[in-house]
Design a protein around this nucleic acid. Structure first.
Lengths: 100, 100
DNA sequence: CGTGTAAGGAATTCTGACACG
DNA sequence: CGTGTAAGGAATTCTGACACG
């Protein structure tokens, strides 16, 4: 895993990096758009990838999109990825069967 | 500047990532081996590069090297870089003069 | 010299709530 | 719905000092 995906950034720094208020960042988590890790004590930890995601989310909201729409959009992307995975596996199965 | 050089990691996380105690990390700063940024409030912020550097430092200490030696070693590297820079500039100057 | 620890204070973050619209 | 804010508490970090070796 690269630096980009290590959850090491506190909410204060995430706020500085994105220009978003901590309130907004916490709210996007409440709406299930972002998933920081937590320290033992419960403080949030974000990755650089999360930080980029936060900016994306903020942009979409600025464009009038609602949080549930953003979440739905994300779920559809994930489904497509799942489907691609399944198709790939399907192809491999076909190839595997052909070897027999 | 890449993610690797952004100073976004608190000392607690730096401690987890390196396996070093916070005490050690602060001490290496006292000995001028590492240079974190500070938040407005004064809390330390490290980059991934710093984290790697911390591990290097700890390894050298484990091998019996003293902090002043590590610092001296680092200064020599920097001097060499400076010299290389100067030589490069010198070469460019020569090339420039030859054009005249 | 390098590191642990207890001490007291300051900065940071957390949650749940009220407000507005 | 998305966001600001004041509130009280908890987690995190800071510095300077004492300890050991």
């Amino acid at each position: 895993m690269s630096y980009k995906d290590k959850k090491v950034i506190g909410i204060g720094i995430a706020s500085e990096l994105t220009g978003l208020s901590e309130r907004k960042i916490r709210y996007y988590e409440e709406r299930k758009l972002i998933f920081p890790e937590r320290s033992k004590g419960g403080t949030r930890k974000y990755s650089f990838h999360d930080v980029e995601r936060l900016v994306e989310i903020a942009n979409k909201i600025e464009d009038g999109m609602q949080t549930f729409e953003i979440r739905r959009e994300e779920m559809r992307k994930l489904k497509k990825t799942d489907i691609r995975d399944k198709m790939l596996r399907g192809q491999l199965n076909v190839a595997f069967k052909m070897r027999k």
